[in-house]
């Protein structure tokens, strides 16, 4: 019985997603823009404008590129803003603080409209 519950919690741990994954799903936001983590704000902008000319559906009819553009736009959204970029960098450095990182993400993503705690309880 005890073994079963141990096993269960082990599986639960396995299922627990890395908290930085909420930002760019399974991808790394920097990778999507073809950047290193130390890129400066101007590099980020340049990379985004260049990639959008390549992958935006108006410029590229391939449906795969559309999916990629959505990811690139999302990554840019996170990295262009200094505060969300800091939070993302923190999430990369501290993957164990899942709940803190998730709360930070929600604060940035949905603004003041959704309080993550209220959502948790409600």
């Amino acid at each position: 019985m005890a073994a079963a519950s141990h096993l269960l919690s082990f599986f639960l741990l396995l299922l627990l997603p890395a908290s930085n994954a909420i930002y760019c799903d399974e991808d790394d936001c920097y990778d999507l823009l073809g950047l290193k983590q130390d890129a400066n704000a101007s590099d980020i902008k340049k990379a985004y404008y260049k990639l959008s000319l390549k992958y935006h559906p108006d410029k590229n009819p391939d449906p795969e590129s559309r999916k990629l553009f959505v990811k690139i736009a999302n990554a840019y959204e996170i990295l262009k803003d200094e505060s969300t970029r800091e939070q993302y960098d923190y999430a990369i450095e501290h993957p164990e603080e899942v709940f803190y990182n998730t709360a930070q993400y929600y604060r940035a993503y949905y603004g003041h409209k959704t309080d993550p705690r209220a959502v948790l309880i409600g």
């Binding site: 299922l15 997603p17 994954a21 998730t102 929600y106 993550p116 959502v119 948790l120 409600g122």
Partner: peptide, 10 residues
Amino acid sequence: LAVLPKKLQP
């Protein structure tokens, strides 16, 4: 329906 936070629970 009620809102469920994304990926908070496994």
